[in-house]
């Protein structure tokens, strides 16, 4: 994706950084649509399990409120810390502090993996509890919204792992720190999306 010519850009800003911001702007509408769907269908499910209310089916099966706030709070904290770590890693890359770069990039990746793991656990748990994509509108819109966020996190993890391997090979130099900055910007965006999803899905009854 290298720019066509090396001459200075009109705005003085790097084209790739501008591109990633443009992409993030576009993604805002992607998640806005998913969040809208979730909110429009809030409370419209015909059958349980429900996110915040207990439900007993006509057949007598009882469901507790399904959301696990504690677990997800931990996941949220992990994602927030990962944002902190990646920005420290970037700082290390820009100042040519290899140890700082590798340590914090590694920590970021760990946080990301744990977040995805948390989500995989949450999803399997829900399926065991009887909430599937097909069960009701809550299940459909919940899995779609958080699932697409999770996919974004996974993509971010893959991108960061690539950067980590490059860093190990000493290819994330201060001059090339921008490569890491692009990944970091994407990663932060995934984080801010979760900052919106967390209260909207988990904390608002």
């Amino acid at each position: 994706m290298a720019p066509a010519a090396d001459h200075a850009t009109t705005t003085g800003l790097d084209s790739r950084k501008m591109a990633i911001w443009t992409f993030i702007g576009s993604e805002c509408l992607f998640f806005a649509s998913l969040i809208s769907t979730y909110l429009v269908y809030r409370g419209k499910s015909l059958v349980g399990p429900f996110p915040h209310e207990a439900w007993t089916s006509p057949a007598g099966q009882h469901f507790e409120p399904i959301l696990e706030i504690k677990l997800v709070t931990v996941g949220t904290a992990l994602l927030l810390f990962s944002s902190l770590f990646v920005v420290i890693a970037l700082n290390g890359a820009q100042r040519n502090r290899r140890g700082q770069l590798l340590t914090f990039l590694g920590l970021t990746i760990m946080c990301g993996i744990f977040f995805v793991g948390m989500q995989v656990y949450e999803f399997t748990h829900f399926v065991h509890e009887g909430l599937k994509l097909q069960t009701n509108l809550f299940g459909a819109s919940f899995f779609t919204l958080t699932g697409f966020h999770g996919t974004h996190v996974t993509m971010g993890v893959i991108w960061l792992i690539t950067m980590f391997i490059l860093a190990l090979r000493g290819k994330v130099t201060p001059e090339k720190a921008l490569n890491l900055e692009l990944a970091a910007l994407y990663w932060h965006f995934v984080d801010v999306v979760w900052i919106v999803i967390f209260p909207v899905v988990y904390l608002m009854k």
Partner: peptide
């Protein structure tokens, strides 16, 4: 973390304008 406070205002507008449309939607 995304450095919008320090970076070019252009990046901020690239983010804020879609956010406005997203909020409207």
């Amino acid at each position: 973390y995304m450095h919008l406070k320090q970076d070019s205002r252009l990046f901020s507008s690239l983010f804020v304008f879609p956010l406005i449309i997203a909020a409207v939607v």
